[in-house]
Design a protein around this nucleic acid. Structure first.
Length: 232
DNA sequence: AGTAACATCGGGAGAATTTA
DNA sequence: TAAATTCTCCCGATGTTACT
């Protein structure tokens, strides 16, 4: 038996994104029936389209949280690390408003990042609170443990490593900028009725993140040629 | 009410990578 | 180099929503 694995090609991704723009998210059948897209998506079912977007969605949320956390920690430069409350307050201050369950999600994500070695967990004798600070691995992120549908021509991990941390770092940097926009989406996702509209907005934000990634890549190339660039 | 389409999630399996 | 681990993708079950 066994599933026939069919990696998403760039053409399929483009066709799907074009379909979402044209017909709207959730209109998978319409997208598949669209004569302009049917050929590119001929080997995909409506379930495939749905799952692809769903996984993209999940992936972006991971980027969202990591981006906000890394930004907070890079500003909270306490040598002993920052506790969850300090990180929460920073993000809340920046964001003005956060989702009701954000603190819980933040705490769990911090534990996860610490477990993965992307953050350093600092224990203090005087406090039961966990403190976290960035470490050398903070910007050397491996891909999150969710399918990452945007990366269709999956490079081997060795290739990724040989390029150094820059690509991952670029993703993180791009996500920081996109993070505050994306969290608005999350706020409204509590009202599940409007999820489809929010996903549509998310698609646009994803495009923005991609554009930022292109810019980040260009900057990286310039830097690698010895040019000095300043970030505001 | 019946039906079609969709959302969400868990789990299985193959491929790729790491480790001993 | 084989075994173990991680990543990526797909399928199917279940529940919900929208339409007729």
């Amino acid at each position: 038996m066994g599933n026939q694995k069919l990696k998403w090609t760039a053409e399929e991704e483009e066709a799907l994104l074009a379909g979402v723009r044209k017909h709207g998210p959730g209109k998978w059948k319409n997208i598949l029936r669209d004569p302009e897209l049917a050929e590119q998506l001929s080997s995909r079912s409506n379930i495939d389209l749905k799952v692809f977007i769903y996984l993209l969605f999940n992936y972006l949320f991971l980027l969202l949280y990591d981006g906000m956390i890394f930004e907070a920690l890079s500003n909270l430069t306490d040598a002993n690390g920052s506790d969850v409350s300090a990180i929460f307050n920073f993000i809340e201050q920046q964001r003005q408003e956060v989702p009701p369950n954000f603190r819980r999600m933040l705490s769990s994500r911090l534990r996860r990042l610490a477990a993965q070695g992307k953050l350093e967990k600092v224990s203090h004798l005087k406090s039961t609170q966990n403190f976290y600070k960035m470490n050398d691995n903070s910007l050397v992120q491996r891909t999150p443990h969710v399918a990452r549908p945007k990366e269709s021509n999956t490079k081997s991990r060795q290739q990724t490593n040989s390029q150094g941390p820059s690509i991952s770092q670029q993703i993180v940097e791009a996500s920081i900028t996109a993070a505050y926009k994306l969290v608005e989406v999350e706020n409204k996702l509590d009202v599940s009725k409007g999820a489809a509209e929010e996903i549509e907005r998310l698609m646009k934000l994803a495009e923005e993140a991609d554009e930022m990634l292109v810019i980040a890549r260009e900057m990286h190339e310039e830097c690698s040629q010895g040019k000095i660039m300043y970030l505001n």
